[in-house]
Amino acid sequence: MSQEAIHSGDGPPDYYVPHSSALPIVGSTALFITAFGAGHFIQQSTDTVPTNTGSFGFWIFLIGLVAVACMMYSWFSTVVKESYQGLVSEKLDRSFRQTMFWFIVSEIMFFAAFFGALFHARVITVPWLAGASDNLQTHLLLWPDFADTWPLFLTPGGGLTQAMAAWGLPFINTVILVTSSVTITLAHWALKKNSRGPLKVWLGLTVLLGSVFLVLQVVEYVEAYHELGLTMSSGIYGSTFFMLTGFHGAHVTLGTIMLAVMLIRTMRGHFTADDHFAFEASSWYWHFVDVVWLGLFTFVYWF
């Protein structure tokens, strides 16, 4: 795929329109393989579906994921290359920024679905099961022994769990993420002043903090499963807990990878004081992940 820009004269073109690219079709095929594999993998590994046995799903899923990763790598390198060819005008840069902004909005809405479920469960469902509002009969006839508590230590069906305390690991993790938001901002300031040394230090520190967060999250999960009996299947408390922290963790992972890539690119001398969109996008993403965490800490752990 040779990308030859018909572009002459000074400065970037008004707008750069790439023509023909194999990336999208490769990407959508990869996505399809991932989904197809994931479906089989899930069915095969949770044995609720008697007709789907075997283990090929996992491998297809893996191949799909690798293909998606390769596609993304190649896509972003293409964009970086184009930027180095001077094809990115101010206007295109603005497009990139707006795209990232709306992408983050959509991510927020994705979390909103789970927060919505959490709030509904806490504010409406659990009290209703215990007879609140006009649900006395629900309580008397169906769940007479059920009491309204949150965290939900004892589910209506009799499942038991303990809650994750907010002021242990979760609080440490909060401190870590908030700090990392500060360090990424310091890195950004450094970049804007073109001081590469501090840039590398702060950025490296941010990646490190992100990784430590993830490690602690794993420790927390192990504790939840093995000491607290808090699992995905321990009722709505466990469901919302793992869904929210799990998807958040996945986003931290993604954000950390993005920042790590930025670190590598910085090492290679990429970015200038006034042209570093990729860096900014990653840092926006990081702030978004941080803000979501604050919501999590408040509503999942604390209150």
Binding site: F110, A113, G116, Y237
Partner: peptide
């Protein structure tokens, strides 16, 4: 994204033991 969220909850209810939509688990 909200649709994506709700089908994800379906998937975990179906296979990973969550009880978003099940009263016996407080859902």
């Amino acid at each position: 994204p909200v649709l994506a969220g709700v089908v994800t909850m379906m998937l975990t209810d179906r296979h990973f033991g969550t009880s978003f939509f099940e009263a016996s688990g407080g859902g």
